[in-house]
Design a binder for these strands. Structure first.
Lengths: 365, 365
DNA sequence: CTGAAAGCGCTAACAT
DNA sequence: ATGTTAGCGCTTTCAG
């Protein structure tokens, strides 16, 4: 049964109570910082705790109706810079509280939905004090249940406003608009756009921002320049390849995530296109890598780690103060201009988007 | 206290026992697949479980001496392809068992050691049935405790052989040797090497493999061509820059991780060096991105996802069968040849490395 | 085959 | 200020 470790370790509050001759309730009081324990007693308890190396048993603590001091985190996949960046903020914020983080990732595509839900069931049902949910695949499957149980949770980067849910999100529309305008002001007229994962709220918001900028500058929206992506590197790579091999290829591409933008960069290289000379590229997120790749990526920063930290703090507030009013917290986006964009090659007649630009193949690479 | 959800949900075994008029012990038996329950009774229990939507309370289960069906996972940071790849294997393997994964990452550099240890304490002390430890920062701080408690654990990618510990590791020496030989056979004579994080066992193993290949081919080891890295992108980038701007720069660089190799690629680009024309690059790990970047990276595959899966299965075996003998499981490495290497440019006098190649700028787009 | 009863370690009334 | 007493939901003897 594998329970060989059951009896071995486990210093309990009873042990430390016996050690110094008080009741275990008193020990519990001290441990939970309750009022009304004589300072001297408190100190003796603390000493014994230290001496015996007591470690709280979260199970028992939670079961007895106390808190577990555990925050559950649900992410839809770790393999991307976006999640990592968010995690960083969350981790730092959590290290300043006395909570622990339990992370559940539903990478596996099969049974993903099932997994996410049943995991949430378990979490609600005892394990965690609250839940942080990062752009989940099928939130509806269980958010309803969280609501029923009045279980503390916060949605991260999920601006879906229905139902007054506690949520942290970025000003996606505004961010996409600014980035597109920047490209337009640089002189670009044919700007490719790669969307995010279709079901994510931010996907349409960013697309709308892109369209709005186009409209504001009297450019017609060309659906041929829009490709469906998924926020991930591969999606960007594939879409970039498609866009750049178009007969009438764009001179700039705006990808809805940095991971995708980096994919576009590699696609461009594969086609022997220079960045930014031949093709300007803008990303979204400002993940760590954005400032590391060559050339450094111009992108819309949404301060992911700040979002993560804000979400965590909001959640802790809900846990410790269930009556707190629900908030929808928007984090501002901001265009970070680096080295991946420049005006389109001047040789093109601005009025007419030139025909096929067969990328020069003369240099060997 | 945030316990508003305490009473709300929670269908318990008592509920379902009452529902069908049996004792809760019988329900427990069915739930745990114990022998000796009348099939008819069993079926009624199962039906009621389904009907009432019962979800086990892990806390109570574990507390009562059963298993929690939770496996704890300790990683030292999520922000790299290496960990991600490992995680993928683990996640897939775990989805085929009836265990859940709880992930703890000790990203924050401050108090890292403290955190790792105290988390392990909590995990041992009730939360998990077993622990998977991925190249931890300070394993010694708590492995001893795991041993004392006879708590099931498996070290992943930690070939430190001291103490007969259950471990999964790759044939690092052999892999590095093969990669270096490949480069030598291509005609390279000055081969740069970037090490991993200093304290990780694989770091010295790979370096030794590199040295062994050099020696086997009568090349002298030149310490000036070795740079200290850390397995991460930035370290590779920095070291790559240093190596490539050496007066007598190498014609090939072997980085101890793909993340670093990709950093080297960007460093090369920044110096206007073409890959592989001007500089050959080899990585280690074969992370997902290795076959995605342009040009595709030649690398030493260590089948990370397979390692992850193997580790998980090994751990489950220990949990369910504590008497299993401890194993040290080696996973074979294998050189995967892609597009990032070629023979050194013949035009160069082998002794002296030429300056920069300005990539052709002739095409307009 | 199934029920009764005793905890697991802890928190939270309720006493004192 | 501190001790006593119930449970939390579950697994596991021990009796039938």
């Amino acid at each position: 049964m594998g329970q060989n470790h059951k009896k071995s370790g486990g210093v309990t509050i009873v042990d430390i109570a016996r050690e110094i001759g008080v009741s275990h309730a008193t020990v519990s009081r001290v441990l939970n910082g309750h009022e009304g324990v004589k300072p001297a007693t408190r100190q003796r308890v603390l000493d014994a705790v230290e001496r015996l190396g007591y470690v709280a048993n979260l199970q028992a603590r939670r079961l007895a109706g106390g808190r577990s001091h555990v925050i559950g985190l649900i992410v839809s996949g770790l393999t991307n810079g976006y999640t990592n960046q968010l995690l960083e903020g969350i981790e730092i914020a959590v290290s300043e509280t006395d909570y622990d983080l339990l992370l559940y990732s539903s990478i596996s595509r099969t049974r993903r939905r099932l997994h996410e839900s049943s995991y949430v069931d378990r979490l609600i049902n005892g394990l965690a004090d609250g839940l942080l949910i990062i752009s989940p695949f099928f939130p509806e499957a269980y958010i309803e249940r969280l609501e029923q149980h009045n279980f503390p949770y916060v949605l991260v980067d999920h601006s879906d406003q229905r139902g007054n849910r506690p949520v942290i999100y970025a000003t996606n529309h505004q961010g996409a608009l600014e980035a597109t305008e920047y490209l337009i002001q640089l002189g670009h007229r044919r700007i490719g756009f790669i969307t995010g994962w279709q079901l994510h709220p931010s996907t349409s918001e960013r697309l709308e921002g892109y369209k709005a900028a186009l409209a504001a500058h009297g450019l017609v929206f060309d659906a041929a320049l829009v490709r469906q992506g998924d926020f991930l590197y591969e999606g960007g790579y594939r879409a970039g390849l498609e866009l750049l091999t178009l007969p009438d290829a764009p001179t700039a591409i705006f990808a809805s995530s940095d991971d995708m933008a980096i994919g576009v960069m590699d696609a461009a290289r594969q086609l022997n296109l220079r960045i930014p000379d031949d093709i300007s590229i803008v990303g979204f997120d400002d993940i760590h890598q954005a400032s590391l790749v060559y050339p450094k990526l111009t992108t819309v920063s949404q301060s992911l780690s700040q979002m993560g930290a804000a979400a965590l703090n909001m959640l802790v507030d809900y846990i410790e103060n269930p009556q707190s009013p629900r908030r929808q917290h928007a984090v501002a986006t901001r265009l970070v201009i680096r080295d991946s964009c420049q005006p389109p090659a001047p040789s093109y007649p601005p009025s007419r988007q030139v025909a096929v630009h067969e990328p020069a193949k003369e240099h060997n690479m």
